[in-house]
Protein backbone atom coordinates (compact mmCIF):
# COMPACT_ATOMS: atom_id res chain seq x y z
CA UNK A 1 0.00 0.00 0.00
CA UNK A 2 2.83 2.34 0.93
CA UNK A 3 4.50 1.45 -2.32
CA UNK A 4 1.41 2.14 -4.42
CA UNK A 5 0.95 5.52 -2.76
CA UNK A 6 4.60 6.32 -3.31
CA UNK A 7 4.44 5.48 -7.01
CA UNK A 8 1.21 7.42 -7.50
CA UNK A 9 2.72 10.37 -5.69
CA UNK A 10 5.76 10.24 -7.96
CA UNK A 11 3.62 10.06 -11.07
CA UNK A 12 1.35 12.91 -10.05
CA UNK A 13 4.21 15.19 -9.06
CA UNK A 14 6.25 14.50 -12.18
CA UNK A 15 3.24 14.94 -14.48
CA UNK A 16 2.34 18.16 -12.71
CA UNK A 17 5.89 19.42 -13.02
CA UNK A 18 5.90 18.64 -16.73
CA UNK A 19 2.63 20.54 -17.17
CA UNK A 20 4.09 23.47 -15.21
CA UNK A 21 7.09 23.63 -17.51
CA UNK A 22 4.88 23.29 -20.61
CA UNK A 23 2.69 26.10 -19.36
CA UNK A 24 5.73 28.28 -18.75
CA UNK A 25 7.05 27.47 -22.23
CA UNK A 26 3.66 28.45 -23.58
CA UNK A 27 3.97 31.72 -21.74
CA UNK A 28 7.09 32.36 -23.80
CA UNK A 29 6.05 30.87 -27.13
CA UNK A 30 2.46 31.92 -27.69
CA UNK A 31 1.99 35.03 -29.77
CA UNK A 32 -0.17 37.46 -27.79
CA UNK A 33 -1.47 38.17 -24.32
CA UNK A 34 -4.82 36.44 -24.82
CA UNK A 35 -3.13 33.24 -25.97
CA UNK A 36 -0.68 33.39 -23.10
CA UNK A 37 -3.59 33.38 -20.67
CA UNK A 38 -4.37 29.83 -21.76
CA UNK A 39 -0.81 28.84 -20.93
CA UNK A 40 -1.15 30.43 -17.52
CA UNK A 41 -4.39 28.49 -17.17
CA UNK A 42 -2.47 25.23 -17.53
CA UNK A 43 -0.29 26.08 -14.54
CA UNK A 44 -3.28 27.29 -12.52
CA UNK A 45 -5.28 24.11 -13.02
CA UNK A 46 -3.36 20.95 -13.81
CA UNK A 47 0.07 22.16 -12.69
CA UNK A 48 -1.07 23.09 -9.20
CA UNK A 49 -3.65 20.30 -9.09
CA UNK A 50 -1.36 17.39 -9.90
CA UNK A 51 1.55 18.57 -7.74
CA UNK A 52 -0.77 19.10 -4.79
CA UNK A 53 -2.36 15.70 -5.45
CA UNK A 54 1.08 14.16 -5.27
CA UNK A 55 1.83 16.00 -2.03
CA UNK A 56 -1.56 14.85 -0.68
CA UNK A 57 -0.58 11.20 -1.29
CA UNK A 58 2.48 11.85 0.85
CA UNK A 59 0.55 13.65 3.58
CA UNK A 60 -1.97 10.94 4.38
CA UNK A 61 -5.18 11.65 6.30
CA UNK A 62 -3.95 14.57 8.36
CA UNK A 63 -4.57 18.27 8.77
CA UNK A 64 -1.95 18.82 6.08
CA UNK A 65 -4.25 17.16 3.55
CA UNK A 66 -7.06 19.56 4.47
CA UNK A 67 -4.76 22.53 4.05
CA UNK A 68 -3.57 21.29 0.67
CA UNK A 69 -7.19 20.87 -0.44
CA UNK A 70 -7.99 24.35 0.84
CA UNK A 71 -5.17 25.99 -1.12
CA UNK A 72 -6.11 24.03 -4.23
CA UNK A 73 -9.79 24.98 -4.04
CA UNK A 74 -8.82 28.57 -3.38
CA UNK A 75 -6.57 28.73 -6.41
CA UNK A 76 -9.20 27.01 -8.59
CA UNK A 77 -11.78 29.61 -7.54
CA UNK A 78 -9.60 32.70 -7.81
CA UNK A 79 -7.56 31.98 -10.93
CA UNK A 80 -10.47 32.41 -13.41
CA UNK A 81 -11.43 35.63 -11.66
CA UNK A 82 -8.03 37.23 -11.98
CA UNK A 83 -7.64 35.82 -15.50
CA UNK A 84 -10.95 37.32 -16.56
CA UNK A 85 -10.13 40.66 -14.93
CA UNK A 86 -6.82 40.76 -16.76
CA UNK A 87 -8.38 39.78 -20.10
CA UNK A 88 -11.10 42.35 -19.74
CA UNK A 89 -8.66 45.09 -18.78
CA UNK A 90 -6.51 44.21 -21.81
CA UNK A 91 -9.57 44.30 -24.10
CA UNK A 92 -10.70 47.63 -22.71
CA UNK A 93 -7.34 49.26 -23.16
CA UNK A 94 -7.32 48.29 -26.82
CA UNK A 95 -4.98 45.30 -27.00
CA UNK A 96 -6.33 43.47 -30.05
CA UNK A 97 -6.32 39.69 -30.13
CA UNK A 98 -4.27 38.12 -32.87
CA UNK A 99 -6.55 37.31 -35.84
CA UNK A 100 -8.92 40.06 -34.77
CA UNK A 101 -12.07 38.52 -36.18
CA UNK A 102 -14.25 40.31 -33.68
CA UNK A 103 -13.92 43.63 -35.48
CA UNK A 104 -17.44 43.98 -36.97
CA UNK A 105 -19.55 43.53 -33.89
CA UNK A 106 -16.89 43.55 -31.23
CA UNK A 107 -16.65 47.32 -31.32
CA UNK A 108 -18.21 47.56 -27.90
CA UNK A 109 -15.24 45.74 -26.42
CA UNK A 110 -12.29 47.26 -28.19
CA UNK A 111 -13.17 50.84 -28.89
CA UNK A 112 -11.70 54.27 -28.65
CA UNK A 113 -8.49 53.69 -26.75
CA UNK A 114 -6.53 52.24 -29.62
CA UNK A 115 -3.29 53.95 -28.65
CA UNK A 116 -3.03 51.98 -25.43
CA UNK A 117 -1.82 48.85 -27.20
CA UNK A 118 1.62 50.31 -27.69
CA UNK A 119 2.00 51.08 -24.01
CA UNK A 120 4.53 48.99 -22.14
Amino acid sequence: MEMILYVMSWMAIITGSVFCVIGAIGLIRLPDVYCRMHAAGIIDTVGVGLIFLGLAFQAGWTLVLAKLAMILVFILFTSPTSCHALCRAAAYSGVHPMHGEQAPDGADVVDDEEDASSKT
Binding site: Y34, M37, H38, G41, T45, P80, C83, H84, R88
Partner: peptide, 11 residues
Amino acid sequence: ITLTPGTVTVY
Protein backbone atom coordinates in the same frame (compact mmCIF):
# COMPACT_ATOMS: atom_id res chain seq x y z
CA ILE B 1 -15.18 28.62 -19.35
CA THR B 2 -12.22 30.58 -18.04
CA LEU B 3 -11.02 27.77 -15.79
CA THR B 4 -10.89 25.40 -18.75
CA PRO B 5 -7.60 26.11 -20.51
CA GLY B 6 -8.10 26.97 -24.15
CA THR B 7 -11.07 29.23 -23.54
CA VAL B 8 -11.19 32.53 -21.65
CA THR B 9 -14.24 34.70 -21.10
CA VAL B 10 -13.19 38.20 -22.09
CA TYR B 11 -16.42 40.08 -21.70
